[in-house]
């Protein structure tokens, strides 16, 4: 199973990366693949590509601001949350997605 995520916060200095790290750690714990794109002050890093979208079950949008290139995710299940919640509840978020998308 592959999960995608985009993280972004107003200053793009700290929470963007904390949320990315939280989600990656939670996914690792559960043994699922995740790719987290960060949209911070540095710009977009680890950008999600069309190939990533093909085999992903869902995308977590953890952002307090409108994300760039959001139209990429048309047609894929999205979970929108604020960035603080992604840091705090990353385990639950990943567990919920696994539960929903595993047959």
């Amino acid at each position: 199973m592959k999960i995608l995520a985009v993280t972004s916060c107003p200053t793009g200095v700290a929470h963007t990366y904390l949320a990315a790290e939280s989600l990656e750690k939670s996914a690792q714990k559960k043994g699922v693949e995740i790719k987290v794109e960060t949209q911070g002050s540095i710009g977009i890093e680890n950008e999600i590509t069309a190939a990533d979208l093909k085999d992903a079950v869902a995308v977590v949008i953890a952002a307090d601001v409108n994300i760039s290139k959001g139209d990429r995710f048309t047609g894929i299940p999205k979970l929108k949350i604020d960035v603080q919640k992604a840091i705090k509840h990353s385990d639950k978020i990943i567990a919920k997605i696994i539960e929903k998308f595993s047959e």
Partner: peptide, 16 residues
């Protein structure tokens, strides 16, 4: 340059 921003993102990631 983005150098310092990279440093700060590295720091943020390590806080966990």
């Amino acid at each position: 340059s983005n150098q310092h921003l990279k440093i700060l993102s590295t720091l943020s990631r390590n806080l966990l």
